[in-house]
Design a protein around this nucleic acid. Structure first.
Length: 743
RNA sequence: GGGCCUGUAGUCGAGAGGUUAAGACGCCACCCUGACAUGGUGGAGAUCCCAGGUUCGAAUCCUGGCAGGCCCACCA
């Protein structure tokens, strides 16, 4: 129904080149570069609509708004797609090219969707993380941080998938329930419980609970490993669970995450138990796979009578989401950024930013307080920004690349300044969060145009999901602080997830996914945008609501029809005499402007859109419009002035949420585009008071007519007035409700 | 186990010390009244999760429960 209007205005907006007057202030917005999956989901619609509301509001208020869009192209999901299509054996460069090509196709699709949503993005300043120019900026930033001592390479425990032979990120873990056996193994003076006897050779201590009466006497003594005949210390730690197994545990480096904590806490030695292919090392079972070694050692332990008990139970094991194989903790050379040592500083910096909602900052603070180690910024992948360093394998010296962008395949040879040997270009790539954590600097053109940067920085606002506060927001604040000494933005706004209507997460497997494209077949764009505004409190997960979007569509139709009415009545006015009802609605309009403004200043989109809807439908259409009808036979200029004024100012405000229709309506009345925010004030409290009583009287007449099965138009000979009305409103009542005489 | 968020008609939700506790969906009845039947008008429907406390006054503030959700950690 409104499609022609949508197409008309999108064409106008998208073909217009945006220009900026550099002599005036500019407000920059840091929007999320979406991962280039090829389709926007409801969560995208929610957050990009939020951004657009803010951008349009700020623009109407007279600001120059700089609002570009980026794309987070690199990373694991794209590699998976390409692997699925072309297999695992493509040469690196060809693989990368395939990824790039695929990403461009996806970007085109998503860009079309964004344009269709009417977002006023400045497409002249798009950025894509996979292009050489972007790589260069990321690499520059990393080298700069390395110079500051923020980046280092270290041998460090990482999550390792022996099957894929790669370090993986915490986010790539999945839980899997597996059958397991808990063995009680006798160590002489103590019996420990373990599910991983094959790690016995990497046992570096025994731990018991400090208050466990069974073991109090042996704390500090040694115990002897069976088979290996090596002695380890018995230590106390409050993390040991007294009820589990025997209440005594062997600490191995590393059986699991808890082992790592204990090793650090008690400063224990490290024995590497498993190699990168998942075979044992430093043991009597070297070369065996983990499963084989477990079988073998259990047999050996049984033969010497060291196993006292076996218990079968189900255990949750962390597996790699890609191959479903158990993940090991393992030493590996990786690159790190020194996040942890700046904990307090980073909390102080975050407090300089306004968080909407305020509790968002606690997600940030809690995460920082619970950080176990620094940010691992390297990945064993292909489709990513190369790490711009050379490494000397002989003396571990590191040198940054001389020419950027740096690609290891094309890197010039380099000799180590320390030992004279040939250095190796690093072939690992950077974590994708390294790419995306400088978006405020990309937006502000820090690496291209320092004058522009100085002008817009810190950016006005960042909008992002609550669940990535601990990654994107944290890494951005950290990196931008180190690179520029400033906060990245003055404000940060957090949005929640869109759930399925039943309150569950949308997922393909549950078949409850609602897509924007499907909705747009049935609902106008401006309805979808209103849904976003109506969807509620910030940073709160909300089920998708068909009620809301249906209402939004109905509201658009209402607005359109009322506009038709107003348009049909318009004519030049000369003698504007305002009646009390005019003064009432103008007063209410003036209040509405203030209220919506306040809501928008606080990013309360729901409050703003609901105020607009309620005013327009329940006051303007349901009452005021009806009050004007009889006047077209008489003195009508006051009504025309008022209708036009409400329509004008309302359309301006409504255009934040429903730009297509609002611009069209405004265009039809004024022959130009909306260009500013309402600047209209009107106050007449006395008229408001009287008209509110009048409205109640109207209701009474309506009730009477209904209970007597009369049409609203039916004429009444007499009506007994029980309240005191002004003569003008008495006349109004007679005319509006078709009453001959008031008694 | 730790942190955070949320409990208001059948459903969704506004309200943030004083209102007859908005509005929407759904339900019932009537009305094609000069834009709109994708509409209009009216109606029924709420011990504002529970228990204490602060206050002249609490849905609103405090304390303690109970329930749900999210994130994190998690038993070797």
């Amino acid at each position: 129904m409104f499609e022609d209007i949508e197409i008309k205005w999108q064409k106008i907006w998208n073909e217009r080149k945006k220009t900026y007057d550099l002599n005036k202030p500019i407000i920059a917005i840091d929007t999320p570069p979406p991962f280039t999956s090829g389709t926007l989901h409801m969560g995208h619609i929610l957050s990009y609509s939020y951004i657009d509301f803010i951008a349009r509001y700020l623009m109407l208020k007279g600001n120059q708004v700089f609002y570009p869009q980026g794309w987070d192209a690199q990373g694991f999901p794209t590699e998976m797609k390409i692997e699925a299509k072309y297999g695992r054996d493509l040469p690196r460069e060809e693989f990368r090219q395939r990824c790039i090509q695929w990403s461009y196709e996806m970007i085109d699709k998503m860009k079309e969707q964004m344009k269709r949503m009417g977002y006023m993005i400045d497409w002249g300043h798009e950025y894509i993380t996979m292009v050489p120019e972007y790589h260069e900026k990321v690499q520059k930033s990393i080298i700069e941080m390395w110079r500051q001592g923020e980046i280092y390479r270290d041998n460090h425990p990482v999550l390792w998938c022996p099957h894929c032979r790669s370090a993986i990120a915490k986010a790539e873990l999945e839980d899997k329930e597996m059958d397991s056996v808990l063995y009680d193994i006798n160590f002489g003076n103590v019996t420990i419980s373990t599910t991983r006897p094959e790690l016995l050779h990497a046992c570096v201590a025994i731990a018991v609970h400090p208050d466990d009466p069974r073991y109090k006497s042996i704390i500090g003594k040694n115990a002897k490993l069976p088979i290996y005949d090596r002695e380890v210390k018995i230590i106390a730690d409050q993390d040991v669970s007294r009820d589990f197994g025997t209440g005594a545990v062997m600490i191995c480096t590393y059986g699991d995450y808890q082992d790592l904590i204990w090793q650090k806490r008690h400063n224990l030695e490290v024995i590497e138990a498993i190699d990168k292919e998942g075979r044992l090392k430093n043991s009597k079972y070297d070369g065996m796979t983990i499963d084989k070694a477990r079988e073998a050692i259990v047999k050996d332990l049984k033969s010497i009578g060291a196993i006292e008990r076996e218990r079968h139970y189900k255990k949750i094991v962390k597996v790699h989401d890609r191959c479903k194989n158990p993940v090991e903790l393992m030493y590996s050379y990786e690159w790190f950024a020194s996040l942890k040592k700046h904990k307090d500083e980073l909390i102080d910096i975050a407090k300089m930013i306004n968080w909407y909602p305020e509790f968002g900052i606690y997600h940030y603070i809690d995460w920082l307080n619970n950080l176990d180690w620094d940010w691992i910024i390297s990945r064993d992948r292909i489709f990513g920004t190369p790490i711009p360093f050379y490494v000397c394998e002989y003396c571990n010296n590191i040198e940054p690349a001389d020419e950027l962008p740096f690609y290891p395949e094309k890197a010039k040879p380099k000799m180590c300044k320390q030992c004279g040997n040939q250095m190796k270009p690093e072939i690992k790539v950077l974590d994708v969060w390294v790419d995306s954590s400088i978006t405020p600097l990309i937006v502000s053109k820090y690496y291209e145009n320092i004058d522009f940067h100085n002008k817009v920085f810190p950016n006005f606002i960042r909008i992002q999901g609550l669940e990535i506060v601990r990654t994107w927001a944290l890494y951005t604040i950290y990196r931008v602080w180190k690179l520029t000494g400033q906060i990245p933005w003055k404000n940060i706004l957090l949005n929640g997830n869109v759930l399925a209507p039943d309150g569950k997460k949308m997922s393909k497997s549950l078949g409850n996914v609602i897509s924007p494209d499907d909705l747009l077949k049935e609902y106008p764009v401006d309805a979808l945008r209103q849904w976003a505004a109506m969807s509620g409190a910030l940073a709160k997960d909300r089920p998708f609501s068909y009620e809301d979007i249906k209402y939004a569509k109905a509201f658009l139709i209402k607005y359109w029809n009322a506009s038709k009415y107003v348009l049909s009545k318009l004519k030049p006015v000369t003698d504007v005499k305002l009646r009390k009802v005019d003064r009432w609605i103008l007063h209410r309009l003036s209040e509405l402007i203030e209220k919506v403004q306040k809501s928008m200043d606080n990013y309360q989109f729901r409050e703003a859109i609901v105020s607009l809807q309620q005013f327009y439908w329940n006051e303007f259409c349901d009452y005021y419009l009806e009050y004007t009808k009889w006047r077209f036979n008489n003195e009508v200029d006051g009504a025309i002035y008022t209708l036009k004024k409400v329509q004008e100012e309302f359309s301006k405000m409504f255009s934040i949420f429903a730009p297509h229709l609002a611009y069209e309506v405004y265009w039809q009345i004024f022959g130009k585009e909306i260009e500013d925010w309402p600047n209209f004030k009107f106050s007449d409290p006395e008229a408001v008071k009287q008209v509110e009583i009048f409205n109640q009287e109207v209701s009474k007449v309506r009730t009477y007519k209904i209970s007597n099965r009369l049409s609203m138009k039916a004429e009444l000979d007499k009506w007994k007035l029980e309240t005191n009305l002004d003569p003008e409103l008495k006349e109004e009542l007679k005319q509006v409700m078709h009453i001959k005489e008031l008694i």
